[in-house]
Design a protein around this nucleic acid. Sequence first.
DNA 1: CACCCCTGCTAAAACCATTTAGCACATGCA
DNA 2: TGCATGTGCTAAATGGTTTTAGCAGGGGTG
Lengths: 339, 339
Amino acid sequence: MAKKRVTLADVARLAGLSTAAASMILTGRPDTRLSADAHAKVHAAAASLGYRPNVAARALRTDKSRSIAFISDYVATTRFASGLIRGALAGAEAAKHVMLVLETGGEPAREIQAVEAALDRQVDGLIFAAMRAREVFVPDIAITIPTVMLNGTSARFPVSVLPDEYRGGRMAVELLVRAGIGEGIVLLGHNANEEAGLFRSEAISRRFAGIRDAMAEAGLDFAAELSSWDWEPGYGYDLTRQLLARQKPRALLCLNDRLAFGAYQALAEAGLRIPQDVGLVSFDNDEIASYLRPGLTTIGLPHEAMGRKAIELLLAPSPRPALVDMPVLIRGSLPGAAR
Amino acid sequence: MAKKRVTLADVARLAGLSTAAASMILTGRPDTRLSADAHAKVHAAAASLGYRPNVAARALRTDKSRSIAFISDYVATTRFASGLIRGALAGAEAAKHVMLVLETGGEPAREIQAVEAALDRQVDGLIFAAMRAREVFVPDIAITIPTVMLNGTSARFPVSVLPDEYRGGRMAVELLVRAGIGEGIVLLGHNANEEAGLFRSEAISRRFAGIRDAMAEAGLDFAAELSSWDWEPGYGYDLTRQLLARQKPRALLCLNDRLAFGAYQALAEAGLRIPQDVGLVSFDNDEIASYLRPGLTTIGLPHEAMGRKAIELLLAPSPRPALVDMPVLIRGSLPGAAR
DNA sequence: CACCCCTGCTAAAACCATTTAGCACATGCA
DNA sequence: TGCATGTGCTAAATGGTTTTAGCAGGGGTG
């Protein structure tokens, strides 16, 4: 027969004290006047009974549940940004919190339900995560608990965690320069609308800004800029084929790894070797970047670190927005690199 | 000013009834003797106040929290099996439950913590999910709530959800046969240890069984079986190169998409066209399968359906283990297929 | 009329931890 | 001695819901 759960009253009884004393001792209140002896007895009793506090009872009393809601459009599930959830999960575990994951598909009705479900459960904080960095819709519900925007922004909740795309953009150019490449760099994926920050996100426009500034400082110009609305492998393939029909680039600066993936195929078909004939740098550190031969050198999205940071900010007393460094992953697609 | 949350007592007061009556009506008890008039008044009051029950209070009383814990080794985060979590999330949402996600990295200490954290929160059920189908370690803690194994098995908890690998194996062979390929089929990734079910998982050994049986029934034999311990792209590439040095296969039956990915590269280097010269079928429906040119025909792991099924079983009165059909994804890597 | 049953509802307990108010005793000081 | 202060602890209220036991009043039966 399943024995009843052990309660605080059981602990107190065994320790020969009141539940009040036991509670104060176990929650570690600082200014209590209970004796060292009492502390010892309560802890011993709790340990010997294997006492675990009932979170629901505690939540009812304190309105704290040691849990956090992670509300996203598609993040949790999609391979693109699953690092966000992984980092958040790790951060939550480290802070001894538990994470509720809710997905909304970006639909307002489901967003509302998700927020309500979270609030109903007395979560201690809300993370709104977006798959693609952008201004995120947040339902117009009274939210009085700490809230952090992850990979997105909201006018209503100023605390956000974003990748440092400006520096990332600069670093991509610096990699090319350090590899001794100056002339013949082609930008793959440029899109005037993107660059204006109108569509995809402000994040991407900062990536562009970093690229432009670094190019200008190095006194370089792009040999061509190939525009694509959609950043999928097929477009990278087509654009690169068209490019090769006209000119031989020395390097491709690709705006994401899936474009680069397509470019690899087109380069291979044209008999061009990477990195001897054409070098590549890219962004994101998608899984395919490491599968390609040679490996794709890329400026990674620091999803995991961002997820961690979000939890950190959520639990901090007075958090401020954070930019997270983008890691540089050196692989074989640029000259002069190992592997 | 944040108004206090509206409670059941508020609703009862507005309806002119007791909280007991309000509770019974709102929870929809069947055998109550409350009047139709009372029902109407309570529902009206609840709606007009925007009443939402306090889950903690309810959980305290009933030991039910309308939430489920999803405890996995790496699933949540990793691209391989994120469909599991996506499906479970969808299933939970449909059942008006909320999902706690916990990751353990397969470490016993963290497993124990995860289970305890979940139990502390009165979850209504536990899902143990594994990234790779196998016998899963479940910590030796008293668990008295419904438990389902997802993509794994446990001697202790017989209710599991697994892909129907045997049928999947058969279907892969049938695809080859239907494409008119009989001679010259090479098995890529065969491993005697795997086949014995000793290592990776019993699931994979069922995949082998399906393949063998279907081959035998079609009166076919493999032209070669290439063994690889690790199923990563690099091995697919190396094995295929070695194969091509010796013989020209008509088709490759790859045990997963990453092996196939490597094979694609080796075939391209050898100047062989897919599917005219060599056809490929594979398993998993990894994301790369759709990126390749031509697209890779593959027997998919039905992760999303499995996740959904797990929730369904978890909430069912007397659940039984389930095998989930593996979908066939027809792309261009076999002759006679569109695109 | 006395008794029982039925209908429609309510009072109060229970769930378990936290927290406020305050008790009993000891000590210090005048 | 009288009073203030400090020490170590406890009783009881509190949070919001569910659920059990049972009340009041009306109608039917003998």
